[in-house]
């Protein structure tokens, strides 16, 4: 672009505004201030209705929700801790109870075993005694039977001796013969 033309266009642009009023950056204007007040008042009023009120209400509601959720979480945490403590106590009590039961069972078992052992020993002694008495009785019976048999045999022998008592030689022979018939055991 030709520099003269460029300068001319810039000068034209700068010279266009109303020539009567000298532009000023710090000129105080009452109407402009009043316009600012009125506009701001209307903007603030409308924004309060359409924006700030719903936004602040939503913020409050969300914060209350978060606060409530945090409180519930804190309560749940405390409940969980209390529940954990209760469970710990219950487990501790259950362990003590289990130990007590095991201890009692062991004592009962030991007592039972001792009783059974004593009973067995007593029973064994009784059986042994009974057996010994039976053996003694059987031996007594056997001795009695032997005595009776021996007596019978002596009687028979004597009867034979008497029946055949003709001479001494014969008696001897009879006695010898009878002796042979007696069992050795």
């Amino acid at each position: 672009m030709d520099e003269t033309l460029q300068t001319q266009s810039v000068v034209e642009v700068s010279a266009h505004p109303e020539p009567a009023a000298e532009p000023s950056l710090v000129k105080v204007s009452g109407p402009m201030m009043a316009l600012t007040w009125v506009t701001f008042a209307m903007v603030a009023l409308i924004l309060y209705k359409v924006a700030w009120k719903p936004i602040l209400a939503a913020l409050d509601m969300r914060e209350q929700g978060i606060r409530r959720a945090l409180e519930e979480a804190e309560k749940a945490r405390k409940d969980a801790l209390a529940s954990e403590e209760r469970n710990r106590i219950l487990i501790q009590e259950a362990e003590q109870e289990a130990r007590r039961i095991v201890s009692e069972a062991r004592s009962a078992a030991e007592a039972g075993a001792r009783q059974i052992r004593e009973e067995s020993e007593r029973r064994a002694r009784e059986l042994s005694e009974e057996t010994r008495r039976d053996i003694q009785a059987a031996a007594e019976q056997a001795r009695e039977a032997l005595r009776r048999e021996t007596a019978n045999m002596a009687i028979q022998l004597a009867s034979r001796v008497i029946a055949a008592n003709m001479d001494a030689a014969k008696n001897r022979d009879l006695v010898a013969e009878a002796l042979k018939e007696i069992p050795r055991s």
């Binding site: 520099e3 003269t4 460029q6 300068t7 810039v10 000068v11 642009v13 700068s14 010279a15 266009h16 505004p17 109303e18 009023a21 532009p23 000023s24 950056l25 000129k27 204007s29 402009m32």
Partner: peptide, 25 residues
């Protein structure tokens, strides 16, 4: 002189643009 004229024109333009007026450029 052209540079001086341009500078003055630019200053006038800036002053006009920054100040309040009834002409929308």
């Amino acid at each position: 002189s052209m540079v001086t004229a341009k500078s003055e024109a630019v200053q006038a333009f800036i002053l006009h643009h920054m100040s309040d007026s009834r002409t929308w450029s």
